[in-house]
Amino acid sequence: MNIIFATLGIWIIATLSIFAFIRRSERQDPQGKGPGIIAITSALLALPVAAMMGGILFALAGSVQVVGWLFDLEISSGKVGIFVIAVLVYLFSIDSLVEIFLKSVMGKSVTGKLVLLFTRVLAFYIIGLIVGAQDETALPVAAGLAVMLLVMETLFRLLKKSGKDSGSEGRRRRNV
């Protein structure tokens, strides 16, 4: 239920942001659109953003639940929701900066990936403790979620790379 409310909150914030942007742009046009059209347009433009963020929240919550099931951990759904929202905020803010810093210092090496993994485990552990999880629960959940994110990112990059390669091979076959 927390995921639904979080997604709804994201949709409302995105709608208001888009509305303000469009309204500010329309003030310069003397024949601008009315506020009703702008509201409908901004609400529709915010739907894909909210859907994507809701999907990410759902995947993170599922990953946390799977880790809890694998290690037989007791995690309440309220704590999972708050933990997942905090992790999402971390991933889209501080983690992006850490990842850029590590890529600039270490490049795209395996060591850089391991340092990023360790950083995520530490951050997720601290988030778990702030949310109120016990030490015995926070560490396995943090490690499991960080490993699952690393695996998902690696699989996504491999899929993206194989998609580019297969497209170029198909064009070569047609030309021959």
Rank of each mutant, 00 (worst) to 15 (best):
M106G: 00
A138N: 09
S76H: 12
G32S: 15
L155W: 01
A138Y: 12
I22P: 00
L149M: 02
L97P: 06
T119N: 07
T7I: 11
D72L: 14
Q65K: 15
K113I: 04
I82C: 08
S109N: 04
V67F: 07
L102Q: 05
E26H: 15
G55S: 04
Q31D: 07
L102R: 02
L158V: 08
L149G: 02
A123K: 03
L73W: 08
S17A: 08
R172L: 12
V105M: 11
T7N: 08
R171H: 13
V84G: 00
F92A: 03
A133P: 02
T154L: 02
S63I: 15
F124S: 02
V147Q: 04
I56Y: 12
G167C: 09
I94S: 14
S162I: 05
K113L: 11
L16T: 00
F83I: 08
L57P: 14
I127V: 03
S77H: 09
L88P: 00
F21C: 01
F5R: 13
T137D: 14
S17V: 10
I18G: 06
T111V: 14
E26S: 13
D95S: 10
D165T: 07
L70Q: 01
G81K: 07
Y125S: 01
D72W: 05
V151P: 00
G55C: 04
I22M: 03
L73A: 11
D72C: 12
L73V: 13
T15E: 00
V110C: 07
G112Y: 14
E153Q: 05
S96N: 11
S25T: 08
G54L: 12
L97M: 13
M152E: 01
L139I: 11
S93V: 13
V115Q: 04
V151S: 01
A123C: 12
F71G: 00
D95F: 05
V147I: 14
L60E: 01
S63M: 15
A39Y: 01
M52G: 06
V110W: 15
F19C: 07
L114Q: 10
A142F: 05
L102T: 07
G32C: 12
L114K: 12
S104L: 05
I130S: 00
D165H: 09
V121C: 09
